[in-house]
Write a protein that binds this DNA or RNA. Structure first.
Length: 311
DNA sequence: AAGACGAAAGTGGTTGA
DNA sequence: TCAACAACTTTCGTCTT
């Protein structure tokens, strides 16, 4: 299971981490600047959920130090509608001392509040729906906070460029997540995303193309090796099998056996081969089903690889 | 009996004219 | 816009373990 998945939705669990799950080192440090928990020995990011800065910040001996004091409120988050910086005008018609405003001033403030609200209403309404869907989808897909935040940034850019107009919010959210999950090396297939959202593959693919074109983004084709760890996980295969599968994939890549092939099928085929080599055999049906493909495709891929690599 | 195999026909997406 | 095309899927009968 992905470490991020374990801790993502239960930040209180963070305080109980004593050793690194990767190298078993005990030197775990908090990087408050990016809000992550990191192993100082091997560099594994144990959680990129927000780690609250609990260090003292009340001492300031010089003007410089005073100016450096930066901790006011939560860290900024693109997942919050206003990045966590509220700028709304208080509903109570009181001044800073709690005294009621004069009728004349109260009227002015009401007017300002109304204007402010009206200006932000359309963007706010869109974002509140979009960000809620983004969080829901990402959590269903098991995507970590780093991917969620960046997807939110992509969506905001699309919104600013008025790309959402006339398209579905959910589709653009799904497309943002698809894009960022790929660019972060944690690809989810269109099929998986479509299954988790209420839209079909075609619709999401269309939104994805729009975002890529309009924001001038170009991603390389998905690398089959990035599919291996998750698939192996779902099949309960050891890391040795994973490493072997990736090795086979590299060789297949070299012989140009991967061009134009579905990366998920390739990952499935090489894992199938590697699992047999290591005595962790899984049936074709099991592997194909987990990879969301068919036995026939799995067979075609694995026969081809086996033949060309003389395995 | 379960799993693997492969033929045949059909589907959906890409490409290039 | 359309046809050609490769990859993929579905279905099903047969073979192997």
């Amino acid at each position: 299971m992905n470490i991020n998945e374990i801790y993502l939705d239960q930040p209180e669990g963070l305080s109980t981490i004593q050793t690194c799950p990767e190298c078993s080192g005990s030197h775990i440090i908090s990087d408050y600047a990016c809000g992550t928990l990191v192993c100082a020995t091997c560099g594994l990011v144990i959680s990129d959920n927000y780690v609250l800065d609990d260090q003292p910040e009340w001492r300031a001996f010089s003007k410089e130090e005073r100016n450096k004091k930066s901790r006011i409120g939560d860290p900024l988050s693109p997942l919050k509608i206003d990045y966590g910086l509220g700028t709304t005008i208080d509903k109570r018609n009181q001044d800073g001392y709690g005294n009621l405003l004069s009728p004349r001033r109260a009227h002015r403030i009401n007017r300002l509040r109304w204007l402010h609200d009206r200006n932000h209403r359309s963007v706010t309404r869109n974002l509140s729906k979009a960000l809620a869907e983004l969080k829901r989808l990402a959590s269903q897909l098991g995507l970590p906070m780093s991917v969620r935040s960046e997807a939110a940034i992509i969506y905001r850019k699309a919104l600013r460029k008025r790309l959402i107009r006339g398209r579905s919010i959910d589709g653009m959210v799904a497309a943002s997540l698809y894009l960022v999950s790929r660019s972060h090396g944690l690809p989810r297939t269109l099929r998986e995303i479509a299954a988790a959202s209420r839209l079909d593959k075609k619709e999401i693919a269309r939104c994805y193309r729009v975002i890529c074109n309009e924001l001038n983004l170009k991603l390389p084709p998905t690398d089959a090796t990035s599919m291996v760890p998750r698939l192996a996980n779902d099949l309960g295969l050891s890391t040795a099998v994973q490493r072997r599968a990736i090795q086979i994939l590299k060789d297949a890549e070299r012989l140009k056996l991967c061009i134009g092939k579905n990366p998920m099928s390739l990952a499935a085929a090489t894992l199938y081969i590697a699992a047999i080599e290591f005595g962790e055999r899984r049936t074709q049906q099991e592997v194909a089903e987990t990879a969301q493909t068919t036995e026939v495709t799995l067979r075609n891929r694995y026969k081809e690889i086996k033949r060309e690599l003389n395995l």
